[in-house]
Design a protein around this nucleic acid. Sequence first.
DNA 1: GGAGGACTGGACGATTTCGTCCAGTTTGTG
DNA 2: CACAAACTGGACGAAATCGTCCAGTCCTCC
Lengths: 218, 218
Amino acid sequence: MAVRGPRKDSPRLTARGAATRERIVATAADLMFRQGVTATTLDQVVDACGISKSQLYHYFPDKDALITEVIAMRERRMVSSQKPQLDQVRSMRDLERWRDSLVTGHRERDVPYRCPIGSLANELSCYDDARQSLAAIFSRWQGLLADGLVRMRESGELDPGADPAELAVAVIAALQGGYLLAETMQDEQPFLVALDMALDHVKAHVRTPVANLTQPDT
Amino acid sequence: MAVRGPRKDSPRLTARGAATRERIVATAADLMFRQGVTATTLDQVVDACGISKSQLYHYFPDKDALITEVIAMRERRMVSSQKPQLDQVRSMRDLERWRDSLVTGHRERDVPYRCPIGSLANELSCYDDARQSLAAIFSRWQGLLADGLVRMRESGELDPGADPAELAVAVIAALQGGYLLAETMQDEQPFLVALDMALDHVKAHVRTPVANLTQPDT
DNA sequence: GGAGGACTGGACGATTTCGTCCAGTTTGTG
DNA sequence: CACAAACTGGACGAAATCGTCCAGTCCTCC
């Protein structure tokens, strides 16, 4: 898991080889996403990928190594899809845009309501290596969000007393819970409700200009 | 799954037999809780339970049937642990007590931060039978919570415009997300943060007496 | 005390899964 | 060209896993 040598997992690797390797990981990631890790067979990966078994074992010593790579790919994908958006966050409005893109993203590609990271985390949390990697991914994700909240605080929109890190954790938790309920109930409503709660929670820490203090309707 | 005959799964069943059957389910539930369903072997169940394999197959036709029973047990346990508390909920204060008992419950018995229902849901959501049962459990849970919120609304504490069902979904989602993060990070903080967010969210729908409208610190 | 359920204990087979191995072909690159 | 990597294809073994089966003992209730 730790990076020991200079290049340990690439002892002379052609562009083509790297591509195949990547394809294997992608295929495994997809199968594991849909069926779960334990339920996914190496033979399934081989078949779905259209390669022969010897190729799989040419690139990966065993299933665990493949799983490790799948996790790594999940992190890359999360960052590449989330970072561009979260880096833009400077206001409550931006955060709402982020939420909307999560929702619409699931609507157009009709991928099941399910978090590729959360589902791995649930299944692999009893294996410490994997668990730690997944914890790091969550941290990273949370960090991206927290950075946005920090910017909101610096720009004065967020209350100076608000804790961006803590808010970010809450938002990710809501996201995960929303995914799980939506998936289980096969209904996107819990996902929407959870995300709205999360954003409301952030909004509760938005600096309230006096103008916003309208008279209470009592 | 559906109850067809008068007693289909108890064709003459001694008290002792029923007890053993129950012990098998409990043992399986425990193993599946800690390792996951797919990762749990029938031989493991047999060993952990101290019975012989023929007994397992005497009571259950196959692994699926056992899983079904495990899910049913999870529902019973959830209801028996949650209903007494949630039925008491009549105020924000009661809700906070519920949250506290969730936290302290996990602290004293040092059971891992992990939802017995949520983890099953995550792993079994691709099998429609199981998924539906688990969705029903979530609904039930949410219903218990919503009932409490309805009482809060009736007593005037909760805003008449608040939607108890929706609030309950949000709370359960936060709970689930909190579990997942806490488990993965091996830290109870995300669990606390998520639950606090959820309660704040409910609190935001509490009727605000004029007395509570203290001057904003601007 | 007798019938039937509860239970042991392990043999057994079928199948799946992981992982190995290798002989031979194709592709790519210095 | 020559060498190495990429790849096929499938045989193979070991182990795990599911599920069956049965002979025989123990317990319980009518």
